[in-house]
Design a protein around this nucleic acid. Structure first.
Lengths: 340, 340
DNA sequence: ACCGTATTGGAAAGCGCTTTCCCCATTGCT
DNA sequence: AGCAATGGGGAAAGCGCTTTCCAATACGGT
């Protein structure tokens, strides 16, 4: 095993009795025409030797690779994994390989990965979910990105219009606002928002959108409780709200995960979601479509967002920054029944 | 923009007034000692020029890369994304980059990706969830893998003891069997299994394990209905079972996704899960821990499995194939109350 | 017949690094 | 003082491929 080193192109050329150049041309097809007979011989030789091109060598010679980088906060979060799935599918269509970088929301890691991707001479980079409002970090990322772009790289972001790259903008504000309006339409009057950390952009946008819609429709402001942007955060926030928050008839958790946590907290506290208290989320995570009671939420075309991001980043570069907006759609389910 | 081509090592060397060799040594640290003063100068020059090593060139020169490949059936499935998360974390610790390949369960894609990973000279490859019982395909994958290994690559699989590589074996059989025993202990007597496609190994193993446990404990065989290995498959299978299957008091869906589908089907049919009919799943997907009624399932340490797989594949190669077993733990929840 | 023009194969120059090998200076001993 | 050993820098040989640039051959036209 591992004895005979992998066959190289020169091995193939020798075997076929042609020059290196011809062998390369025969295999790559494009470029210039090679006499069919020779082409045949080269292909046969390559096959016989079990030749596999060395992508690194190709990358060097051609000056470009077949990989794209994807930065996500947490791939095990269904929100990101769904986006990743869409992006991966699209990448496959283009014959590209995806480098997955799990930042865990840590700025240093994010920067480290960005550097690594640059070293790898990745064709493109897509950033998903590093939406922090931390200015210092954002500007460092922006710098890194700029020098990557200067080096001929391409980059796009998902939902972070603060980076100097093409962006798939998710209309968090509008979606949350629409949700608020619908809830008011259903008869709810006193709302609370369960938000993530203050500096998380998505969270802030959804919170603001909801508050705006609510204010316009009812003239009152929703209260809010903030905690982690996760299932447990939702549970804790809801518990706090139940224990010593103001009395409300409806709760908006800024994402489905938090909403599910809220559901759990309600159950534990003996509050029946639906009749006693309405709860709504955001994202419409597929895995969660069957919780009981059915969770009212704002559906985001997550897989499409991933696809779109790749399209954007692979498309013709243009001078001005491109933005592609994606809107959510309110989905009403049993967790927010019409109020009688 | 994009004007001045990226600084290369020779640029750095020139700037620092040293040779290429010295520059390389200064930056890589290891190798041989460089006088501190020169080292300093090189570092400064690199910094000034914004030098980024070219990973492809390094890969060529060193003959090894910093990437590992991960093949999964569907990254948007929480089962795989959780594994991927664990693996990605572990990879980060080792300074490795993860190439994510979404096979969609298509054999051709799987082979294509394997070839691509080989071309990239990936350090290692981890295969998750290509557990098909399709002999032809399995042997083709095995061939591909073998030649990859011969070329000095390393590979490991998750839960597919049929491939000639180190494997993290998930004890599907044992977990399902234990579940069956517990259910019988709770007083259930007539069971049905909702399985995935016949040729899906995980599904088959869980089915068999459950059947074995059930048979030993009750003397009777569970019936089964087979459909897709997904939420919708579970819903359809359950509907069929409810419509024209035999009367049972307990249903085991071979994974949580199917179980959730089954839950939905029950709800729609007016069957109350728990009192009327018990339902259990497998995996203990985190996102699903809050469904109502709480889903009895077999918990798998998914993130650990990902971590373990990487450890295995990065560990010292050994002549004989290594197997690492991972066991599930039955988690009883409200979907399977003690039968009165 | 002759010359200009396609057409196609091959030699060789990189692409940006690492690493071997060689050499010059010190340093330490006898 | 003379010599071996040691330490550290540099030249250059690759790593495996692509792609110019040349050269050779064949072809068409007048």
């Amino acid at each position: 095993m591992a004895g005979e080193r992998a066959a190289t192109l020169s091995d193939v050329a020798r075997e076929a009795g042609v020059s290196l150049a011809t062998a390369s041309r025969a295999l790559n097809g494009s470029d210039r025409v090679v006499r069919p007979e020779l082409q045949e011989r080269v292909l046969a030789a390559a096959n016989k030797l079990g030749y596999t091109p060395n992508a690194n060598a190709q990358a060097m010679a051609r000056g470009s690779t077949e990989t794209v980088g994807l930065l996500v906060k947490d791939i095990s979060d269904p929100y990101f994994s769904t986006i990743a799935g869409g992006l991966a599918d699209e990448a496959e269509k283009h014959g590209l390989l995806v480098m997955l970088c799990n930042t865990g929301g840590q700025p240093e890691r994010e920067q480290k990965f960005l550097a690594a991707l640059r070293r790898q001479r990745s064709r493109a980079i897509v950033l998903a979910g590093s939406d922090t409002a931390d200015v210092r970090h954002t500007s460092e990322v922006a710098d890194l990105l700029t020098s990557y772009l200067d080096g001929g790289g391409r980059a796009a972001a998902i939902s972070q219009p603060r980076l100097p790259v093409d962006t798939v903008v998710i209309d968090n504000h509008g979606g949350a606002k629409a949700l608020a309006e619908q809830l008011v339409g259903l008869g709810y009057r006193r709302a609370a928002v369960l938000t993530g950390p203050e500096n998380l952009l998505v969270s802030a946008e959804r919170h603001a959108g909801f508050a705006e819609g609510w204010l316009e429709a009812t003239g009152s402001e929703p209260t809010y409780v903030s905690d982690e942007f996760s299932r447990d955060g939702g549970r804790r926030a809801m518990t706090r709200l139940l224990d010593d928050g103001p009395k409300v008839d409806c709760v908006f958790a800024v994402n489905d995960l938090m909403a599910v946590g809220a559901l759990a907290a309600c159950r534990q506290a003996g509050v029946e979601v639906g009749p006693d208290l309405a709860v709504a989320g955001f994202d419409d995570i597929a895995t969660l479509r069957d919780v009981t009671p059915g969770l009212t939420t704002v559906r985001l075309p997550l897989a499409d967002i991933g696809r779109l991001a790749l399209e954007l980043v692979l498309g013709k570069p243009s001078a001005e920054l491109r933005k592609r907006s994606v809107h959510g759609e309110v989905v009403l389910r049993e967790s927010t029944p019409p109020r009688s």
